[in-house]
Design a protein around this nucleic acid. Structure first.
Lengths: 125, 125
DNA sequence: TGCGTTGTCAACCATTTGGTTGACAATCCT
DNA sequence: AGGATTGTCAACCAAATGGTTGACAACGCA
């Protein structure tokens, strides 16, 4: 799983990490700060942060003994682009399908009513 | 990882599965059909499809011995909603931060020029 | 009925993941 | 210098993941 897009999806597949990201949209937080709501060790939280950092979702700077965690929201765009691209493609496909079905219905109607006697029924799009 | 959103993110964290989804936006495919481009066993592909199905991204119907796989694109909305919500929140936060910084700069300027003598510096937003 | 095609299920294996505890590094405070 | 706070690194463990092979079920075709 080497590419960034995979790392971003994988990072957000964990509810704890999603919750951290959600909280980081409000403000930067220290590690202890972030760990507070969860019933796991500080080390576990540190690992989660490493996953988020490797995905590029978060950066960690220094500030005395503290290491403030900062959200890098631009990475969201990577996902949004992928999702939107294929959703659009899927929707276009459904639109084409609808058109085909509509045309078949038209043909049906025409056949029944006998209005179009010299119809072309070629399948070329 | 019980919730659907986690399952969807996890499902798309794998490049092979993302590629399958991409191909399914073009047309439904049989399992053999889907497996063709990848250098793995048919069973492995079947497992990938199970992951996609459990995430609600795909449905499998019957058609003789064949099991056509169909993309359920609406599930994308689940992710899009989550992503957009927190991206918007992050952007709003940056906007507030920019406003604060701008205001501080104004105060700086005012102090230097001495134009505003009776300024209110309350922090209420 | 028997054969080929299409796909799933079960068992197994190596690697990754998410958690633990213990040691320790880095910095502030006195 | 010495103690408290904040966080990481390393070793370990159980469960999940992604792959394999072998057996077999469901259906079409001859």
């Amino acid at each position: 799983m080497t590419d960034q897009l995979s790392r971003v999806f994988a990072a957000l597949a964990d509810p704890t990490r999603r919750d951290m990201v959600a909280r980081l949209t409000e403000a930067d937080h220290t590690v202890n700060d972030l760990a507070a709501p969860y019933d796991v060790s500080l080390q576990a939280v540190s690992k989660h942060l490493k996953v988020l950092e490797d995905a590029g979702l978060v950066t960690r700077t220094r500030e005395a003994q503290r290491r403030p965690v900062h959200l890098e929201a631009e990475v969201f765009d990577l996902m949004t682009k992928w999702i939107e691209r294929y959703r659009r493609q899927a929707e276009e496909r459904y639109a084409r399908l609808d058109a085909v079905l509509a045309r078949m219905q038209d043909d049906e109607d025409a056949t029944h009513t006998g209005t179009t006697t010299d119809q072309q029924t070629g399948t070329a799009s």
